[in-house]
Measured scan of single mutants.
Amino acid sequence: MTEYKLVVVGAGGVGKSALTIQLIQNHFVDEYDPTIEDSYRKQVVIDGETCLLDILDTAGQEEYSAMRDQYMRTGEGFLCVFAINNTKSFEDIHHYREQIKRVKDSEDVPMVLVGNKCDLPSRTVDTKQAQDLARSYGIPFIETSAKTRQGVDDAFYTLVREIRKHKEKMSKDGKKKKKKSKTKCVIM
C-alpha cells in the first residue's frame, strides 16, 4: 500500500485542523484551538488504489514558523489553505509557496490551493482571484467548507493525484537520464 505524506499549511484560523478532522473523523470542530502540530493517518481508496494518507496539520501562528522547514522537508505534497473571508490569509499563500519551493529546492512541488469556509456569506476573496492565482502557479484550486464537508475529500484526493503525477514524471525523467548515460565512448 502506497503511503502519501501530505502537509496542510496556511495562516492561523483558516480551518486547516477543521478540514483535516472532517476528512479523518467526519465531524466539524467549530471551536478554535490553535494547533502546534498534529499528525493523522487514514486509509482510503483513490482511483481504485488503496493508500495510506499521513497528514500533518501544522501551526499557522507566526511564533511556530521555525518548525516549518522541518515538516516541509518531509512532506510530499501540500494543501495551501486560505479562508475566503480573510484576504490576508490569501496573500500569505505566496509566502508559504515560496518557502516550500526553497526548502524542497524545487520549482515543481505537488500543491493544491484550497479556499476554505465557502459556506460563509462574508467572502472577501473572489473565486476568480483564487483561480487566477492557482493557474499562475500551475496547481489545482478547490473551494471547501469544513463545516458542510463540501470539497473536503476532493481537496485531499486531488493532492494525492498531483503527487502521483509528480512521481510518474520524475521516474520518466530518471529513465531518460539513465538511457543517456548508457551511451559509451570508444577510443581507438
Rank of each mutant, 00 (worst) to 15 (best):
R97Q: 07
V114T: 01
N86V: 02
C118F: 08
M67R: 09
V81I: 07
Q70K: 05
L79V: 08
A66D: 12
D126K: 05
V112W: 01
L120Q: 07
H95V: 03
M72V: 09
L79S: 00
N86F: 01
R68Y: 08
V109F: 11
I100G: 01
D92G: 05
P121Y: 10
C80D: 01
D108Q: 06
C118N: 11
T74Q: 14
G77M: 10
E76Q: 09
N116T: 15
F82V: 08
S89C: 05
C80H: 03
Y71P: 11
A83K: 05
E63N: 13
M67V: 09
P110Q: 02
E98Y: 02
F82K: 00
A83W: 01
T124E: 13
C118S: 10
P110M: 02
P121N: 11
R123W: 07
S65P: 13
R68S: 15
E63G: 08
A83F: 01
S122L: 06
M67E: 14
L79I: 14
D105V: 04
D108S: 07
L120W: 08
D119W: 02
K104M: 12
M67F: 09
N116A: 15
C80K: 01
M72R: 03
F82H: 08
T124N: 11
S106M: 13
D105F: 04
F78E: 00
D108Y: 07
C118T: 13
D105W: 03
F82G: 14
L79D: 00
L113Y: 04
D119I: 02
L79M: 09
T124Q: 12
V81Q: 04
R123P: 10
G115I: 13
V125I: 10
I84D: 15
L113A: 04
C80I: 14
E76M: 14
N86R: 03
A83L: 02
V112C: 03
G75R: 03
A83I: 01
A66F: 07
D119S: 05
K104C: 15
E76F: 11
V125L: 09
M111C: 05
V112N: 00
E76V: 15
D69G: 04
R97C: 15
D119A: 04
I100R: 01
E98P: 01
L120M: 10
R102E: 09
D126S: 09
D69V: 01
M72I: 11
Y96T: 05
K101A: 08
R73A: 13
F78P: 00
L113K: 01
S106P: 04
Y96W: 12
Q99M: 14
L113G: 01
R68P: 15
K104S: 11
T74D: 15
S106W: 12
D105I: 03
N116P: 00
K104I: 10
D69E: 09
Q70H: 10
A83G: 14
V103C: 10
L79R: 00
I93Y: 04
K104W: 13
H95S: 12
L113T: 02
M72T: 08
L120R: 07
N116E: 08
A66S: 10
D126C: 08
M72L: 10
H95M: 03
R102K: 09
L79G: 00
I100E: 00
N86L: 01
V81K: 00
D119V: 03
H94G: 06
V125A: 11
V109E: 02
N86G: 11
Y71L: 14
P110N: 03
D108M: 05
